[in-house]
Every structure is written in structure tokens, then in C-alpha cells.
Amino acid sequence: MAHIPDGVLSAPVLMAGAAVSLAGCAYGLWRLEAERIPQAALFAAVLFVAALVHFPAGPSSVHLILSGLTGVLLGWAAFPAILVALLLQAVLFGFGGLVVLGVNVMSVALSAVLCRALFLAVARSGNHRQTVMAAGLAGGIGVVLTALLVSLALALSGQAFATAAKLVVLTHIPVAVIESIFSAAVIGLLLRVKPEFPGLTLVGGKRE
């Protein structure tokens, strides 16, 4: 998850983020059947817990962003699920903010939806190796996309943030590497243990 706090971004950026997130959430909720809500909530909870794990990296530690994996598992439902997760993180831990929620949801969920498309395109043929590779790719690219969107939000908010915006992308490269291997492991295990896992059944000529 990515958390820009309140009071940093400019009004047009905030409004654009809110508009995109609102539209995405509306569409995601519309597509989410009532019967699938418990499942979506469970995935969201797993990802919430996973985003709290800190991995040591050099002198400091990093936490996962999980936009790629969220997209692969949830599709368009990623939008409302990430809104729930970020709202909870703001309320429970004070990460992020309220008005900036739109931009934060957009930077994670938009990458999630794009990664879902990428995952399906790469994993099309459906053999095990290729699907795992697609998951790794989605995991890594998800982080890069989220970092790019965060840095775009910063850069558009003022010239003064330009340097910081570039550094945001650079500092996320190690996270992308970790998350790529992490996501490949998650999907690899799911394929072996429960090949009929929802979301993966679209891959590889198996029926929906």
C-alpha cells in the first residue's frame, strides 16, 4: 500500500484522484456480486496482513505494496477492496489521510487492474511455469506502476517535489524485486495446491 499523507498534494491532483477512484470503486462494486463479497473481503484481509510484514533490506526495512497480486486475485474488485484497506490503515495506524484517499487508492488500484490484464495476457497459454512467471511480472510491475503514479501525483503538485518524485521511483526498485519473487511464490503455491482457485481459472484454456 502507498500512503501519501494529507496536506501535501495540490487540489487539482486530489480531485482527479478522487474522481478516478470513485469511478473505479463504483464499477468494481457493480461487478462484484453479493455472493462474492465474503471471498473478496478475505482476500483483502490477507493482503492487508501481508502489507504489514516488514522485510529487512540493507540498513532499513521495506513493506510490500501488493498492487500486482491484488489485481491478479481481485480484478476490478481491487478498487473497493483497496479503499477498505487504506481507510482501515488510516483509522487504525494513521497511515495516509482522508482527503488524499482518492489519490492513494488510485495509485494502488489502477496498477492492480493493469497488472491483472498483463497477467492474463502473459499467462494465456496456461502452463505452470508461464503462469508463475506472469505472476512474478505482475508483482514487480505493480510496484513500479504504483511508484510511478505516486511520483506523478507529487510532480504534478508542484515543481518543488520534482526531485523527491524521481527518488520515489528509485527507492521502490528493491521492493519490486522482493514483491516479484513473493508474488510468484504465492501464485505457484496456489496453482499446485488449489488449481481451481478463483481468478486463476481464467488462465490456460480452463473454463471460467
Binding site: 486475485l73 510468484a184 504465492v186 505457484g188 495446491v193 482457485f197
Partner: peptide
Amino acid sequence: TWRSIGYLFGMLLV
């Protein structure tokens, strides 16, 4: 480490 934690969360998802 990254793979093992990945397996852990895969198991949680299952």
C-alpha cells in the same frame, strides 16, 4: 525469505 513468506500467504489464501 521472500519465497517462504510468499508460500505462507499462499497457504493463508488457500
